[in-house]
């Protein structure tokens, strides 16, 4: 029997929403593994259809300095939306998230001021660009993530897309002050 006190639990979630075949699950797995190697507690979950390609996919990573209490957050700190199908699957959770970066071609315009729409899918391999954007919010895991990507079979191309994503991510951070809070809280996770 444990009698814990009311300590605040600091858990942050990064999600990718997309379509089967875009590599959403793989991207979140790499992100989780890289964060794990940097000493964080992580939980990586996903929701996908029975079909191998084409269905709606939402996958996310919960990051914390302590063991994860609850890997089922009601909303996310940061969402990268790669396809409308994924957004539709978890509409409530995604729309109540702190910051959403959505593909401007494949995701229908979302009229909310915390949504930023940019070219993601057309900038390279979609999941790698997404990972790059996320990394701009947690720069401390960039090297671990690059190591994980290097193990993939088409590492070179993937790394190129990843770097493109990192660039897009930093550009967005420079332009949109709303993203700063999110980046700050995520960065704090690995800083100390």
């Amino acid at each position: 029997m444990s009698k814990n006190t009311h300590t605040q639990v600091q858990e942050h979630t990064v999600a990718i929403a997309g379509r089967g075949g875009q590599g959403v699950v793989l991207a979140t797995t790499l992100l989780a593994r890289a964060a794990f190697k940097k000493g964080l507690y992580v939980a990586q979950l996903q929701s996908y259809g029975a079909e191998v390609r084409g269905g709606a996919v939402v996958a996310y990573v919960v990051l914390s300095k302590q063991p994860i209490e609850n890997p089922y957050p009601e909303n996310y700190d940061l969402v990268i939306a790669l396809h409308e199908a994924g957004v539709a699957r978890r509409r409530n959770e995604i729309l109540s998230s702190k910051a959403i970066i959505a593909d401007e071609d494949l995701v229908k315009p979302i009229p909310k001021d915390n949504v930023i729409q940019v070219k993601i899918v057309k900038s390279g391999t979609p999941n790698m660009v997404a990972l790059g954007i996320i990394t701009a919010f947690i720069p401390a895991i960039t090297e671990e993530l690059r190591k994980e990507i290097s193990k993939l079979w088409n590492a070179e191309e993937n790394l190129r897309s990843f770097d493109t994503g990192v660039r897009i991510g930093f550009e967005l951070l420079g332009k949109h002050t709303k993203l700063k809070d999110v980046a700050e809280s995520l960065t704090k996770l690995v800083s100390s």
């Binding site: 797995t29 989780a32 794990f36 507690y41 992580v42 939980a43 990586q44 979950l45 996903q46 063991p67 994860i68 890997p71 089922y72």
Partner: peptide, 9 residues
């Protein structure tokens, strides 16, 4: 499925 497919430390 959550436990089986979810990955954690």
């Amino acid at each position: 499925e959550f436990v089986g497919h979810g990955r954690e430390v």
